[in-house]
Design a protein around this nucleic acid. Structure first.
Lengths: 83, 83
DNA sequence: TTGGCATATCGGGAAAAGTCGATATCTTTG
DNA sequence: CAAAGATATCGACTTTTCCCGATATGCCAA
């Protein structure tokens, strides 16, 4: 999922017709591609959010998730220096 | 354990009297400090080895483990570029 | 305000990981 | 080669993680 969110226009072409990618990709799109249930995907995304790897933006009835690139940079640096 | 192995002379002063740290730290030293059973520590170390994070060197009846810094560098870069 | 759609939360069952004791293997020493 | 010490492997049990269906919540449109 994290890799998918790196290039939304490539992995979620369906969403382009409805909304842009400014706020990220909505849960339904990710769920469809993941082939897991709605509840599983929702929970997974919320875990990634709490961990800081993605950010959520509620717009109407949809929740859009997008990557927080800073977190990946920080993790990379953490491994370099602390591990 | 990975952090301990970064500075063996600090975290495993006992071993200095018997052997150096050229080949790393032996299982018994790590086990004593970890407070887990011998079998658990041995299995854990072998997993880390298979994953490439540490290297094993058998010397007599002892097996010494030391960090493979390249693996950490590679992981850090992998997160930077692929994730 | 009610019905429908998108998402979130909850509780439970299945799968995986962690940990242990017992035992096997390997190595050195007598 | 037998005994003893260090490490590795095995089987079982416990804990954690994964994933689901059911249900709750939030939002929009009629």
């Amino acid at each position: 999922m994290l890799e998918w969110l790196k290039e939304p226009e490539i992995h979620f072409p369906d969403q382009l017709q409805h909304a842009g990618f400014e706020h990220g990709v909505c849960v339904g799109q990710i769920q469809a591609k993941a082939g897991l249930t709605q509840s599983t995907v929702s929970e997974y995304l919320s875990i990634l959010q709490r961990a800081g790897f993605i950010e959520a933006k509620r717009v109407g009835q949809w929740t859009y998730y997008k990557r927080n690139e800073g977190a990946f940079e920080a993790l990379s640096k953490l491994i370099q220096t602390n591990l």
